[in-house]
Amino acid sequence: MTMSPLPTLESPQFQESGLCELPNAASMYEKILQAEARAVQDGANENVMLVRVVGHPLLELHAKRGIFGNRPCETIIDEVIPSSTGHGDGDNVVFEVGRRYRDHLICRFRTSTEPYRYPPPSSHPSRPSYDKTAKEKALARDDFQCMITGSFDETSVKHNAELQAREKDLGGRPTVVEACHILSESTTQGVGASEESSVVNKTHYAPGVLAILTQFGLERLAKALEAVNGVHEVWNLLSLEPHIHADFDSLKLWFESTDEPNRYEICFFNVTIGRYIRAISIRPETSGPNAKMVDNFSSDWEGAPPPDPKLLALHATCARVAHMSGAAEFLDDLERQAEETDVLAFDGSSAHLLSGLISPYAVIYGVA
């Protein structure tokens, strides 16, 4: 998947999407196309990317209306349609909407740092005793295996004879299996009142993603995440081996829903990721050259529900939009520049870098 222009109003992709059936969708989309054309003509690469961060989600979210309904698309339409006609202010409105979704949605489903590595369990893995933390619940829910490759968690195998026998029968090699957050662990850190204090301690950037979830009609999900330790609930966790964890966090791998509940197609940014999965997988669904690359994220344990399908669908949307819009490349370049820059330049030439780095932390006013 590579960066791509927005489809025109006359294109089969747009016509077959059915998006024009929504009120004001066609006129709003025309504004976006005009802003894209002017940004391309001006050579304003970041603005081109921001416009596409608005346009591509419309098609992606509308395609997932069976999961979300029309509310997300209607929200984006309502944000863009009031923009004034003409060259200036209208385009700026589109750019700012794109910046908001890049910084407070895509960035919140994207983690660039090393995955948070939880210490492996020290107790013997048994369901009655393995419910101390959400990470432990997730690992037990997922049968002490990476959900994609089937690789067993090495510490769990070490302490359990039954897992040792199963691992020997299936082959492969035990590895570290990590807890991977669907929505970034840092997203809601400090949001809400602590149990010990009545003082509300909000990070600057958390309200942005929670406001977007609420505006998309996902109020219950936003409130669940806003609760104390809500982001660590088992429905926001996947059990993945480290390399796949890193690819998921960086939006290079995602899961698309199928017609069957809790069954997902494994999608990835480049074929190298697919080759890696096939090479180490001990599951027939994800091993071998003709693997279907699908997996079941089901759970028959009431205390540990499967990963939330709406969160997975939003992650998939953000991953696809990040690559189609150029946001993924922009954010990667921004991080490389930050790593290579020890101090900001006195002449102001680092202003773009500084602005890009602090933009996701700007206060977003609205419903949180």
Rank of each mutant, 00 (worst) to 15 (best):
E167D: 01
E167N: 09
K168V: 09
D169I: 14
L170V: 01
L170C: 03
P174V: 10
T175N: 06
T175W: 05
V176I: 10
E178D: 14
C180A: 15
H181D: 01
H181W: 03
S184P: 00
E185T: 06
S186M: 09
T188N: 00
Q189E: 15
G190I: 08
S194F: 12
E195I: 14
E196Y: 10
S197I: 04
N201E: 06
K202D: 15
T203F: 03
T203Q: 06
G208A: 06
V209S: 07
L213P: 00
T214V: 02
T214N: 03
L218H: 04
E219I: 12
E219D: 12
E219W: 09
A222T: 11
A222D: 14
S239G: 08
E241P: 00
E241W: 03
P242G: 11
I244G: 07
H245F: 06
D247V: 07
D247A: 15
S250Q: 10
L251C: 10
W254L: 00
F255M: 09
S257M: 04
T258W: 05
T258R: 07
D259R: 07
E260L: 14
E260D: 14
R263V: 12
C267H: 04
F268W: 06
V271R: 15
V271I: 12
V271Q: 14
R275T: 02
R275I: 01
Y276T: 07
I277C: 14
R278T: 08
S287W: 03
S287D: 04
G288C: 08
G288P: 08
M293T: 13
V294W: 07
N296W: 06
W301V: 14
W301E: 12
P309M: 10
K310Y: 06
L311T: 01
A313G: 01
